[in-house]
Amino acid sequence: MRVMVWNVWWRFGGNWREREQSISATVEAYRPDVLGLVESWSGDGTDQPHRLAGPCGMHAAWAPSSVPPIAYAEQPGIGFGVGLLSRWPIVAIESHELPNPGKGGPVPLALLATLDHPRGRLHVIVSGSEPDERYAGDRSAQCRELAAIAADERLDGALPVLLLADLNATTDQPALAPLLESMVDLWSAAGADPGAVTFDSAVPYAPDDAPHLLDRRIDHVLARPGRRGQQVPVRGAFVAGDRPCGGVYPSDHYAVGVDLEL
């Protein structure tokens, strides 16, 4: 099973149509079975996950999350949220509020989806956490809540519970400690390059006001075994979307992919 997560940078940058073509080409090239999208959009009677899923014959879901003020200024009426593409039918969706006591304002959400995998129910969480270093406490609180969602006994079963997220922190930072107490960082488990980055200063869209995030691996595929004593066998891991397609980088982030041996 190939699982990927990608922060696709909403409709930012002024060239979202060209970028979406590059995103679609990347999805078709890597053919994930499950793909979590962070900073995806909805509007004009559709949403980005369904637009990407259609050509691949996949199922899709989208859920709103908190919106940066700049988003509505750039694209009035266009939603901001998280999405999911799945090779298998999506049989249930839940939205879970994440805490943001320091920042306040609109509450960020995590999407919990249940997929009808041939070997049983597959539970997938798609989310992001607070990027602003001024609200690092919110980021830590959100990671604790994501850990609690993933640990829910309702999700126990034959298959692992997956978290696909832009967590705006590396695995050696304290914010991720609650998650790593009960979940496995599948990139590390695959023995992939420990120096890999997913938010690269070499990308033309890289911001100049986020030095705490640049040139780090801040996007993650984490998993916990569905039952105590089980393992989550990993065959390999990779980054995608790290090259221009048609002269256009698809996003300001690279995608992270993991191949699991179930």
Rank of each mutant, 00 (worst) to 15 (best):
S182M: 06
V184I: 14
P76T: 12
L163V: 13
E181T: 14
R119W: 03
F238S: 08
P244Y: 06
I70F: 03
D156M: 08
R144F: 00
P64S: 14
L186T: 15
Y254W: 12
A73H: 11
S182Y: 01
S188P: 09
A63Y: 04
H123S: 09
S24N: 07
A29Y: 00
V234D: 10
Q231Y: 01
A147F: 10
R227W: 02
D219A: 09
H96V: 15
V5M: 06
V91C: 09
H220I: 06
V5A: 03
P55K: 04
Q142Y: 08
A210V: 13
L162N: 07
A240R: 01
P178I: 11
L180N: 12
P32W: 05
W6R: 12
D242E: 10
W88T: 07
I23H: 01
F80K: 00
S129N: 11
L115M: 10
Y30V: 15
V234R: 00
A255K: 09
V34N: 07
A165T: 08
H253Q: 02
P250V: 13
P69H: 06
R51S: 09
Q231C: 02
S182C: 13
Q48G: 12
S42I: 05
G246K: 05
G43R: 00
L109W: 00
F80E: 00
N15E: 14
I23L: 15
P233I: 08
